[in-house]
Design a protein around this nucleic acid. Structure first.
Length: 287
DNA sequence: CTGCACGCCTGCCCGC
DNA sequence: TGCGGGCAGGCGTGCA
């Protein structure tokens, strides 16, 4: 599920209950996710103050007063559950049936403010790691990432340079996290539809003019999704404390056989498979 | 170097 | 109601 907008939404939801607070109890219930948690992760989290909560691409970064940063990746099915607590529960305890950890609750953090944060991940493609904050950019998961799509480095000239001579479909190129970091399968389809670029078009053969359209299309799709996510945060308690899982309507994603929503276009959304993954597009207006 | 298939896991949905 | 197959929004590895 989580691409950049969802991860940013989760970060914003966690920020008020994490930043400035101390991790009173850290419990690791299952260490074998995508990569094993570092040894002694629970011990290194215990008592640490969260000084800042940041995001890089699809990673949530919790800077700790200990000089380390907790790197959190949600993978395909990872969730962060927030339980504000009733003010009476002792940290680390599970006195009420409703608080018994589920079978996919892998990490539980009890914060000094009384909030319990649970990292739940059924498919276990998610990950956590600890790394010195000062050299975080050198972490093996982060060091090869391209620029943030919402940052200043990401521009039409930049993308033009990275697409040059690339003989891969533009869909695949945009999924390449070394070119731009944070897009996933859904928002690539959405951005290409907005820019009216066919997903099979080779990256190296897209004109400068069309790349100049693609860059703001990517930015707008992500920004609008973050905005939609932000509005969903206001009532997250109604969703059992589950952050970032907002209803979002996509223009093409998962809309096979339905009409294209571009004004004046009479096309139908098609589903194709590229590199083993679904791509949705309109072959009337995307060229 | 590039582009792509594959595997890692579990849950869900569909057809039989 | 049960079962098998296909599918899922990520990412690294390994191969040609």
């Amino acid at each position: 599920m989580p691409e950049l907008p969802e991860v940013e939404t989760v970060r914003r939801g966690l920020d008020p209950v994490m930043t400035g607070q101390r991790i009173e109890v850290a419990e690791v219930r299952r260490p074998d996710l995508r990569w094993p948690f570092p040894k002694s992760m629970a011990a290194r989290l215990m008592g640490a103050q969260v000084t800042a909560l940041r995001r890089r691409s699809k990673y949530i970064l919790a800077d700790l007063g200990t000089g380390e940063t907790l790197i959190i990746h949600l993978g395909m099915s990872g969730r962060m559950l927030i339980d504000p607590g009733d003010g009476a529960r002792a940290p680390g305890s599970f006195h009420h049936a409703a608080e018994t950890p589920g079978k996919h609750d892998h990490v539980i953090l009890d914060m000094s403010g009384g909030t319990r944060i649970t990292f739940n991940d059924a498919r276990r493609f998610g990950a956590m790691d600890l790394h010195p904050t000062a050299t975080l950019d050198d972490h093996w998961l982060l060091s090869k990432l391209g620029p943030e799509p919402l940052g200043n480095v990401f521009s039409a000239p930049y993308l033009m340079g990275r697409f040059k001579d690339r003989h891969t479909p533009v869909k695949s190129a945009l999924l390449d996290q070394r070119i731009v970091a944070g897009l996933g399968n859904i928002y690539v389809s959405e951005a290409l539809w907005r820019a009216k670029i066919h997903p099979r078009r080779l990256a190296g053969k897209i004109s400068a003019q069309r790349i100049a359209t693609l860059v703001p299309a990517i930015r707008d799709v992500l920004t609008e999704a973050i905005t939609a996510g932000g509005s969903s945060l206001r009532d997250y308690r109604q969703a059992d404390g589950e952050l970032g899982y907002f209803q979002h309507s996509f223009a093409v994603y998962d809309r096979a056989d339905q009409p294209c929503r571009h004004p004046g276009c009479t096309g139908t959304i098609l589903r194709i498979v590229q590199s083993g993954r679904s791509t949705f597009h309109c072959n009337m207006c995307q060229r």
